[in-house]
Simulated scan of single mutants.
Amino acid sequence: MTIPALGLGTFRLQDDVVIHSVKTALELGYRAIDTAQIYENEAAVGQAIFESGIDRHQLFITTKIWIENLTAEKLIPSLQQSLSKLRTEYVDLTLIHWPSPGAAVPVKESMQALMAAKEAGLTRQIGISNFPIALMREAIAAVGIENIATNQIELHPFLQNSEVVAFAKQQGMHITSYMTLAYGEALKDATIQAIARKHQATPAQIVLAWAMQSGFSVIPSSTKRDNLASNMDAANLTLDVEDMKSISSLDRQQRLVSPEGLAPDWD
């Protein structure tokens, strides 16, 4: 199974806000939805999906296991709770959201528990999120590269995570970009705005197209129908070699997400 190039992110969206966002996105044609236990919106996402009436097999649902549930004893029961909230018998992709702080729970233990969840039919694919190279190696050693669908990481024009991306590519591991628009900061960049004018596109479309053409999946979120539709259209935009080079030159290793006490040692 491949991971869709474009999906809907739901970080920071809850209750009626996330229900509206998910329903609107599904109406527009989105079929991939990304949520997480810590977002505290799985039940609302599940409600929106149920009320949309779209057949489950047409959807690609991702959730993520929170750090409190990474032990072999807790992981599967927590995923079963997530499935109940999402009103589905399985998810398409389950990720370790963050590595266990201080390696309190070994990567091997969490990944093997995830593998057991896959073998039990609770999730079609498994993967990781926010893993630097050292922990990617541990995950690969635990379950094999063929069982790791993606590493979901912060990746945008200002933080291109080149070392992690190069290692993933070498191993044959897919990368999913989150925070692709850099909290909207990338949309203000003069280089990106110039490329947008050239293509008669929005800056957001340019950034998303850059990421997808680079081989990454993207999961931008929005509560506005126009933005959701516009983001979806980015999949139809083709940037030329010079455009790609110009955006790649914007990398300044500007990390926006690095929670104290949670973030691993970044590459």
Rank of each mutant, 00 (worst) to 15 (best):
T2W: 07
G7M: 01
G9K: 12
F11L: 13
L13S: 11
Q14Y: 06
D15Q: 14
D16T: 13
V18N: 04
V22F: 02
V22D: 09
T24N: 03
T24H: 02
L26H: 00
E27G: 05
E27H: 05
E27K: 14
L28H: 05
Y30I: 05
R31V: 06
A32V: 01
I38W: 01
Y39T: 08
N41C: 01
N41W: 00
G46H: 03
G46L: 01
Q47Y: 10
A48N: 09
I49C: 04
F50M: 10
S52I: 03
L59H: 00
F60K: 00
K64P: 12
W66K: 11
W66N: 13
I67H: 10
I67Q: 12
N69R: 09
N69Y: 06
L70G: 09
L70A: 07
T71D: 08
A72Q: 12
I76T: 11
P77R: 12
S78K: 09
L79K: 00
L79H: 00
L79W: 01
L79G: 02
S82E: 02
L83G: 10
L86A: 03
L93Y: 06
T94H: 04
P101F: 02
A103R: 12
V105M: 10
V105C: 08
V105I: 13
V107H: 05
A113H: 01
L114Q: 15
K118H: 04
A120P: 07
G121E: 04
T123A: 00
R124T: 14
R124F: 07
Q125C: 10
G127Y: 01
G127D: 00
S129E: 09
S129G: 06
P132R: 08
P132I: 05
I133Y: 07
I133D: 06
A134K: 11
L135W: 07
I140Y: 09
A142E: 07
G144N: 01
G144R: 08
I145D: 01
E146T: 09
E146G: 06
T150Y: 00
N151V: 12
I153K: 07
L155E: 08
P157A: 02
F158H: 11
F158M: 02
L159F: 15
N161P: 06
S162T: 14
V165Q: 11
V165C: 11
A166W: 01
Q170V: 07
Y178D: 08
T180P: 10
A182S: 14
Q193T: 11
A194F: 04
A194H: 10
R197V: 08
R197K: 15
K198C: 05
H199Y: 13
T202V: 04
Q205R: 00
A209E: 11
A211I: 13
Q213N: 10
V218M: 09
P220M: 01
R225G: 03
D226H: 13
N227H: 15
A235N: 07
A235H: 09
L239W: 08
L239R: 12
D240T: 00
V241T: 15
D243Y: 02
D243W: 02
M244K: 09
S249C: 06
R252M: 12
R252G: 07
Q253A: 14
Q254W: 15
Q254R: 15
L256Q: 15
V257W: 15
P259W: 02
D265P: 07
D265T: 13
